[in-house]
Amino acid sequence: MITVHLEPEGQTLTFDTLNTVLQLLHKVGKRQSQALVIRGGELLTQDRKLHRGDEIVVRGVTSRG
């Protein structure tokens, strides 16, 4: 199970299987340039592999006024 926290929405999602950051971004409807993907204090590029038990933050970067 991979747990994903969406910011600033404050939503938490779980996924049974996700191979890469790119797959995750597709699942949450974001593009690479629209969000930072963070695992344990590290920024991940879209080719990075995700693993069972990962806790990921997807932080939107678009200013909203």
């Binding site: 910011e7 600033p8 930072l36 963070i38 920024l43 932080r59 939107g60 678009t62 909203r64």
Partner: peptide
């Protein structure tokens, strides 16, 4: 803005992310 967000994260700069309550529907977005 992706680059400025990455800069803040990598330099541990805590910033606000709350949208202005009046900005809904702003054309620039």
């Amino acid at each position: 803005e992706f680059e400025t967000a990455a800069y803040c994260f990598l330099h541990d700069l805590r910033h606000g992310a709350t949208a202005c309550p009046y900005s809904k529907g702003a054309s620039f977005t």
